[in-house]
């Protein structure tokens, strides 16, 4: 560990802790989940970056959405995201959460995920290779360093807009608002 890193650890331990300990909820939608098992096991070993799968959303701080988002999964995604403790980071994986991808004209698949929950980073591709996940993780480190990964603050500040968008596609949601 070099000196700069040590100084950073002493100055901002919370930020550094969040950087190097990303416990991920892998939201298994669509084809992206095929890329996850090699990523977390022997072949690519995500644990050396501090990325491990978390058993429940309460223990996690990284939300990886791996594939297209249908309306039914959108509901679960919102619930899962709201259960995670702050600070939390979201990464959309593959082109489907970015703009709908090949599901552009689908009656049941939302197009832009970032209109319903905040997304800190995207991994483009159909499908991205597991290496792309690590590039995303290192980018996320830079963003956390520069305070750019502030999706959870955005969610808090603009909760009315997010909730309105969610209710527009899902009808009435059967849980109370997270923030008043």
């Amino acid at each position: 560990m070099d000196r700069n890193k040590l100084i950073k650890w002493i100055k901002t331990p919370a930020k550094m802790g969040n950087k190097y300990s990303l416990h991920a909820v892998y939201f298994c939608t669509g084809c992206g989940i095929i890329e996850i098992p090699p990523t977390i096991t022997t072949r690519w070993d995500a644990e050396r970056f501090g990325v491990t799968p978390a058993a429940t959303p309460r223990q996690a701080n990284l939300f990886l959405i791996t594939g297209y988002v249908s309306l039914k999964t959108l509901k679960s995604i919102i619930r899962t995201y709201e259960q995670m403790p702050e600070p939390k980071y979201t990464v959309g994986f593959g082109s489907c959460p970015i703009n709908g991808g090949m599901y552009w004209d689908s009656y049941n698949t939302i197009k832009h995920l970032d209109k319903y929950i905040p997304v800190d980073g995207w991994i483009a591709g159909c499908m991205p290779r597991p290496e792309a996940i690590f590039i995303a993780v290192t980018h996320l480190w830079k963003m956390i360093d520069n305070d750019m990964a502030d999706g959870y603050k955005k969610y808090r500040n603009n909760y009315d807009q997010y909730r309105a968008n969610q209710e527009k596609v899902l009808g009435s949601l059967d849980w109370p608002p997270l923030f008043k």
Binding site: Y107, I110, K115, N157, Q161, Y162, N165, V169
Partner: peptide, 25 residues
């Protein structure tokens, strides 16, 4: 939605087309 006279394009435009972007941060 799987009936042939279900207009998917129109439905998608009505449903997802006019969802606004989130403003502010």
């Amino acid at each position: 939605p799987f009936r042939k006279n279900f207009d998917t394009r129109k439905f998608v435009d009505d449903m997802f087309g006019n969802i606004p972007e989130i403003e502010g941060h």
